[in-house]
Computed example of a mutant assay.
Amino acid sequence: MNEMPFEKSQNSDDELQTEYRFDYQKAKPNRFAARSGTQQLTVVVLDEDVAQVFTTPESVNKDVKGVN
């Protein structure tokens, strides 16, 4: 095992370039991605005792920012 596994190739096409420039005008949409285009909404339902403490979204965010 005298050879290095990743020795330089004699073919310069195999070498990595320092920078790549992509032509995004030729790009195609991902056919496997969801195409709904609508934003999903996540709803969180709080227990009654928690909802009594956090009555507004602002109060939740205010208290969460202080916790770290």
Rank of each mutant, 00 (worst) to 15 (best):
N2Y: 02
E3P: 01
E3V: 09
E3D: 09
M4Y: 10
M4E: 02
F6K: 00
F6I: 01
F6D: 01
E7C: 00
K8H: 04
K8V: 02
K8E: 03
K8G: 03
K8M: 10
S9H: 02
S9G: 06
N11G: 01
N11S: 09
N11A: 10
S12W: 02
D13S: 08
D14W: 09
D14A: 12
D14N: 12
D14S: 08
E15F: 06
E15K: 12
E15C: 10
E15P: 00
L16K: 10
L16A: 12
Q17R: 04
Q17L: 15
Q17M: 10
Q17Y: 06
Q17T: 11
Q17K: 12
T18H: 14
T18C: 08
T18W: 06
E19H: 03
E19S: 13
E19C: 01
Y20T: 07
Y20C: 02
Y20A: 08
Y20H: 05
Y20K: 07
R21P: 00
R21G: 05
R21Y: 14
F22Y: 13
F22D: 04
F22S: 05
F22L: 15
F22V: 05
D23P: 00
D23T: 08
D23K: 01
D23W: 01
Y24Q: 01
Y24F: 13
Q25C: 08
Q25L: 12
Q25E: 15
A27L: 06
A27R: 07
K28M: 11
K28G: 01
K28I: 11
K28R: 15
K28F: 07
K28W: 08
P29G: 04
N30D: 15
N30Q: 14
R31C: 05
R31N: 07
R31I: 07
F32N: 02
F32W: 11
F32C: 04
F32Q: 11
F32D: 11
A34C: 14
R35A: 11
R35S: 11
S36Q: 11
S36G: 12
G37I: 00
T38D: 14
T38F: 14
T38M: 11
T38Q: 13
Q39L: 15
Q39A: 13
Q39V: 15
Q39C: 10
Q39T: 14
Q40G: 02
Q40Y: 00
Q40D: 03
Q40S: 00
L41F: 06
L41P: 01
L41S: 07
T42C: 14
T42F: 14
V43Y: 04
V43Q: 10
V43A: 08
V44Q: 07
V44P: 00
V44A: 14
V45F: 03
V45K: 05
L46C: 13
L46I: 13
L46H: 11
D47N: 03
D47Y: 03
D47V: 01
D47H: 03
